[in-house]
Design a protein around this nucleic acid. Structure first.
Length: 643
RNA sequence: GCCGGUGUAGCUCAGGUGGUUAGAGCGACGGUCUCAUAAUCCGUAGGUCGCAGGUUCGAGUCCUGCCGCCGGCACCA
């Protein structure tokens, strides 16, 4: 039976980081595990999502054509995955020519079934997130990224998403396996239950995209073209539907709502499962470009090894929930679990076989209670891995390592070796066989998570069969052949010292420089404004903004809104200005009383929650962080203008 | 504001349908063996099980209220 799984098709506006690597590591693990379980073929698709106005602009900023820019970016992804040992089968680029055909086919199918219509859209659009902001006013910032939205008016094709509300709800209800983890399914259920709006799926005036059939000047909306790449990749092999889409929680809605609706509309089979994992935080904080705390997998892998990074992420983070990466936690877990645990067990077991049995696996059935423990371990680990609960599975497997270590101490083979009595020698045989056989089983279990390290231990055990071909049958006790010659013993996980962290920090800094250089605008080119950056303005432009010093005279929360404060600010006019500011989460109202703040005095009035806001309070903010108000160190009279 | 989740030893977390002294791993401390990567193994850790009530012979385990944290939606920057 085949098994087809996918990673997200990664958006090419940033180089791969530890978050994208995480998704991809898990996909690689699942692929190897499913192979062990006997699925055939097991096929993994990854790729790059390359269309959109934003990509087009980024390309322009780098003084490259979209083709060249995306080629460079997708090559970077491919290089990273190669460097990280990812065993993927297909790398699909949404700009691949064969992909156009699939997209058009999907569109035609939907249209033939009556789920596409032409309509006009006027509204706010965020270039950065490819997002239409339905209820936004002109000039409003994007709810996702905070960048200003742009007003667009387009005649577009719409997808009748609203027609699928019931069928989607029925899907979630009838097939709980479709969407995991459970709490994500509940979120999506309540989202869909609130009602769905039709979706504009084409764009005009963007040359960089897949042209809509017949309509030369339309291209497809990036999500309409991206999701279907999962099908393009395996069209020739007829592997659709996918058995698993691994995604991050940030793109859940596209995969759990839009995607199945598109497929329903086209009369195509639905994927079997969508699993949304959480984010990898850096020491409890969200990683983001603007915070400058994005970590990359290469520098970490170069110091501790790819496998150790994989192990850490999978063991430390409960799959499906957010998890935290920290250098010291990585080093600690490496030393405790890999060096002292698995590495040391392999080392002591193989060394004893060399010393006491001349490097040959002794003839014995092994100790029964350890065989039982191994069987129990396998059962529990299988259950955990099948449920995508990798941290639990690894915990169970490490439990067996602990049992063997204890068993070795109880039997004290170094004592038995001194006694030439046949009883002792037989017990020594049994002890060594037991340890080696249990190690073999642990090693087989470790393979999907840490392929290279498992391969090393496997070969040190002298196993004739390549580890890539093992199956669940190899997890049974007694498959280790007596008389087999073990290989040369060498440490698989050398202990790390504190210098490892310094080294990783150094390499991370170097990696950031490399990536910055790679994606920097070409030096000779005139610097076009990139998204998030600002174009230069003249002093006259600046003079248009009336910034004033004001003093807060009253502040209260706006009922029914978490983030809004209703403020009255004295800026030296007859009456204090009334304004509404989204700073309630950062500043309790009483803390603001009497505070001097900076106000944009000539902003167009706007009603928020029924209160007319006449101006704006100036605050600095970072993505995902709370706003911080601008203020003055010296005293300054109310009403003073900033210029 | 609405909906959902969650709050247990320094850290990460287990603790179906309520029942003797609340557990594991890691870290820390003490001890031990010597095959092994100063590893292993053994022992110790006295934690108001968020707070306050309630049901019950008996509650981390059920109910109510409150507080904190997280997520989704709304709202918003």
């Amino acid at each position: 039976m085949k098994y087809y799984l996918t990673t997200p098709i990664y958006y090419v506006n940033a180089a791969p980081h530890i978050g994208t690597a995480y998704s991809t590591f898990v996909a690689d693990l699942v692929k190897r595990f499913k192979k062990m379980e006997g699925f055939h073929p097991v096929v993994l698709t990854t790729g790059s999502d390359e269309h959109s106005r934003n990509v087009e602009r980024a390309a322009k900023a780098a003084n490259l054509s979209p083709q060249d820019y995306t080629a460079k970016m997708s090559a970077e992804f491919k290089n990273q995955w190669k460097h990280l040992g990812i065993d993927y089968d297909h790398f699909i680029r949404t700009s691949d020519p064969q992909h156009q055909e699939t997209v058009r086919d999907l569109f035609e199918r939907c249209r033939r079934n009556g789920y596409i219509y032409k309509g006009a859209y006027t509204g706010q659009y965020c270039v950065n997130d490819e997002l239409y902001v339905n209820e936004a006013q002109p000039g409003d910032p994007c709810p996702e990224c905070g960048r200003p939205t742009e007003t667009v008016t387009e005649e577009n094709y719409f997808f009748k998403l609203s027609a699928f509300q019931d069928r989607l709800l029925e899907l979630y209800e009838k097939d709980p396996e479709f969407l995991k983890p459970d709490h994500r399914r509940n979120e999506i259920k309540s989202f869909v239950a609130q009602g769905l709006n039709d979706l504009s799926i084409t764009r005009t005036n963007i040359p960089w995209g897949i042209p809509v059939p017949v309509e030369g000047h339309h291209v497809f909306y990036v999500w309409f073209d991206a999701l279907i790449s999962y099908m393009t990749a395996v069209k020739a092999e007829h592997l659709w539907p996918a058995d698993l889409h691994l995604i991050g929680k940030d793109i859940l809605r596209f995969h759990a709502v839009y995607w199945p609706a598109f497929l329903m509309a086209a009369d195509l089979p639905l994927p079997k499962k969508v699993f949304a994992h959480g984010w990898i935080l850096f020491e409890e904080n969200k990683m983001s470009k603007s915070r400058g705390n994005v970590l990359h997998p290469g520098p970490i892998a170069d110091v501790v090894g790819i496998d150790a990074l994989r192990y850490f992420l999978l063991r430390e983070v409960t799959f499906g929930q957010d998890g935290s990466f920290a250098y010291d936690a990585l080093v600690q877990r490496y030393n405790a679990d890999l060096a002292n645990g698995l590495g040391n067990l392999a080392s002591r077991t193989l060394t004893m076989i060399n010393q006491y049995r001349d490097g040959r696996i002794p003839d014995s059935a092994g100790a029964g209670h350890i065989a039982d423990a191994a069987k129990e371990t396998t059962e529990q680990a299988l259950e955990a891995f099948d449920a995508f609960n990798f941290s639990k599975g690894l915990e169970v497997i490490w439990g067996l390592i602990s049992i063997i270590d204890k068993f070795i101490v109880e039997r004290a083979p170094w004592q038995l070796a001194k006694d030439q009595e046949s009883h002792s020698q037989k017990l020594l045989d049994e002890t060594l066989y037991t340890a080696a056989e249990a190690l073999r089983i642990v090693c087989a279990w470790v393979y999907p998570v840490m392929p290279e390290s498992a391969r090393k231990i496997w070969s040190q055990l002298g196993m004739p069969q390549p580890i890539e071909s093992i199956t669940v049958a190899d997890l049974h006790w007694g498959r280790l052949a007596a008389g087999q010659k073990v290989g040369t013993v060498s440490g698989v996980f050398p202990r790390l010292d504190s210098k490892a962290i310094e080294k990783m920090l150094e390499l991370e800094a170097a990696e950031r420089e490399r990536l910055a250089a790679l994606f920097a605008p070409a030096t000779a080119a005139p610097a076009a404004p990139a998204p998030g950056e600002s174009a230069k303005i003249s002093i006259d432009d600046f003079a248009k903004v009336d910034l004033r010093v004001g003093q807060v005279v009253s502040a209260e929360r706006v009922k029914g809104a978490d983030k809004l404060l209703h403020l009255k600010v004295d800026i030296g006019e007859a009456e204090p200005r009334t304004l509404v500011a989204g700073i309630a989460e950062a500043y309790p109202p009483e803390q603001l009383l009497g505070r001097k703040v900076v106000i944009v005095a000539n902003l167009q009035p706007r009603k928020l929650r029924g209160i007319e806001s006449n101006g704006m309070i100036v605050a600095a903010s970072v993505e995902g962080g709370k706003p911080v108000l601008a203020g003055f160190l010296e005293d300054i009279p109310i009403g003073a203008r900033l210029k």
